[in-house]
Design a protein around this nucleic acid. Structure first.
Length: 499
RNA sequence: GGCGCUAUGGUGCAACGGUUAGCACGCGGCCCUUUCAAGGCUGAAAUACGGGUUCGAUUCCCGUUAGCGCUACCA
């Protein structure tokens, strides 16, 4: 059995955890947080992280649905040590386990395929609210099948009395009355050509957690109610249950569970918008967990270093996009420049602005300085190719609002900008102070405030009202570009002045 | 309906019996300033309600209310 787990590989001795998503086509935010916390825990403890695909349901057993999950994990930088294992390939293991339960009397064959729980001791009841109360035991359990037709499924035989307990690292000691636990299905009744049924989630998860020697089950709090069933199964299969750690749910702004209704819910959509993975990790880490103090800006290495299940909250949290954006700007500004550069490079490649000359040597130096100049104003990666475009390309347009704001104040602007171009060309040295001196000289001679010229020049050379300080921008662009763009802008400025 | 979980500003987190209830996002103001950001200072804003326990409750207990989760031969 062990050989099928692939557990022979890593020789690590620490805890073993798993992230076990169901293939839904993409990794959603809640799943990402669960994966992240498993990963933090494994890395912090020197343990092993396993990836397991829970595709026992035929609907979900499709390769393309798994790919989206892997894509999300890769973007987040979450590395797993084993897997991905696919439950759809381990069916025999689950059938054997179901048979074991049948053999030792902890499960029974159930024929009530169509009408669930038709008959039985706890027949249907009308609830006070008019709703149908769940029936928890089936007549088949006592060997009195309501129908012997068709193929039977396998149900777990939950003890009639007593309680089931487990330890939760987040929620503490939990205890459930067995009366409240239904006889859940282990193996579905065989369909069509099948001679044996397909396993359900409850069975497959427990069998795998045992086989893979999982020590800590870290998952969403929506599984708390499932846990007693699984604890019972561990007992029936003769295994010790792991430590459970349930994570609070992530809610949308309306405080309901995060779903497609709330817009972007797939992590790759955040990648596509231009968020940095580390900013996203930092943000997600603080949803349901804190290091205990006031520190919020925590690099991933710090997150791993400080992570502990004891500090996981029990309260559901709301996904606050504004704060995510704040984290992104923080990382954009504070990341060591060499860590940011590859991200910007990828962005410029996406927008077809990238030039190979920036990959090394003097070109790379210029690129690094320019990105550093731009980054205090950037909120998302695409900003590097939108309003920063003129720094990387000669093809750019003048922002309409910027023209309105800065090219209409002074009718003689074209004249002054022409003078400025000349003054800059005449400069003996091309540096910040020389440029500033030249511009202020032109402004003084023209009798206008320096700001008028500064703002008008900015629009002329970068096309935007939003840009880094003018003289630094000029240095980044170089003398020829600056003077060339000043002259090239003249007709457009003329036009704006007249209007 | 049943079972379970939770409850600190609008949001995310601190304070694990004694604090003028702290930090951050967001929002407002001021400073800085050639644009826009960033940054600094600053303002408004919270312990759901009711009972206990205690010299003392945000903190412990009970109840109420509200929200959420589970209640499938989905996971």
């Amino acid at each position: 059995m062990d050989s099928k787990t692939g557990a022979a590989g890593g020789a690590k001795s620490g805890p073993r955890v798993r992230f076990a998503p169901s293939p839904t086509g993409y990794l959603h935010v809640g799943g990402a947080r669960t994966a992240l916390f498993n990963w933090f825990f494994a890395r912090h403890e020197g343990g092993t992280m396993i990836l397991r695909i829970e595709d026992t349901d035929a609907e979900r057993n499709k390769p393309e649905l798994v790919e989206g999950i892997l894509e999300g994990l890769r973007w987040l930088g979450i590395e797993w040590d084993e897997g991905p294992y696919h439950q759809s390939e381990r069916t025999e293991l689950y059938r054997a386990a179901a048979q074991k339960c049948l053999d030792n009397g902890s499960a029974y064959l159930c024929y009530c395929a169509a009408e669930r729980y038709a008959g039985g001791d706890h027949a249907e009841e009308e609830g006070a609210g008019g709703k149908v109360r769940r029936v928890v035991r089936c007549a088949c359990r006592d060997g009195k099948p309501t129908s012997a037709e068709g193929q039977p499924g396998v149900r777990f035989k939950v003890p009639l009395g007593g309680t089931t307990r487990f330890q939760d690292a987040v929620f503490g000691a939990r205890e459930f009355s067995n009366e409240e636990i239904e006889d859940f299905v282990l193996l579905r009744s065989p369909r069509g050509e099948e001679t044996a049924g397909q396993p359900t989630y409850q069975l497959a998860a427990v069998v795998d957690d045992i086989a893979m020697r999982i020590t800590h089950v870290i998952r969403g709090a929506d599984h708390i109610s499932n846990t007693p069933k699984q604890v019972l199964l561990y007992g029936a299969l003769g295994a010790e249950p792991p430590v459970f750690a349930h994570l609070p749910l992530i809610l949308g702004a309306d405080r309901t569970r995060l779903s497609k209704r709330h817009g972007a819910t797939s992590v790759t959509s955040y990648r596509d918008e231009g968020f940095l993975p580390e900013a996203f990790r930092n943000f997600l880490a603080l949803l349901g967990w804190s290091a205990g103090g006031d520190q919020e800006f925590l690099r991933t290495s710090e997150l791993i270093g400080k992570f502990s299940l004891e500090h996981v909250l029990r309260t559901n949290g709301v996904f606050d996009r504004a704060k995510l954006e704040w984290f992104n700007t923080q990382y954009l500004q504070k990341l060591p420049i060499e860590e940011l550069l590859p991200e910007v490079e990828a962005e410029l490649k996406r927008s077809k602005l990238w030039k190979e000359e920036w990959a090394s040597g003097a070109g790379h130096e210029w690129f690094a300085k320019t990105v550093d100049l731009l980054r205090p104003r950037v909120r998302l990666l695409p900003d590097f190719s939108s309003w920063s475009r003129a720094f990387f390309s000669d093809e750019f347009s003048y922002n309409e609002a910027a023209r309105e704001k800065f090219w209409k104040k002074e009718p003689r602007l074209p004249e002054f900008l022409g003078q400025l171009a000349g003054a800059l060309e005449a400069l003996a040295e091309w540096n910040h102070d020389a440029c500033e001196h030249a511009l202020r000289g032109v402004a003084e001679a023209a009798g206008v405030k320096a700001g008028v010229l500064i703002n008008a020049t900015r629009v002329a050379i970068v096309g935007e009202a939003v840009a880094p300080p003018l003289f630094e921008s000029m240095l980044a662009l170089g003398r020829e570009r600056v003077t060339g763009r000043l002259r090239a802008a003249l007709p457009a400025v003329q036009e704006s002045c007249k209007a």
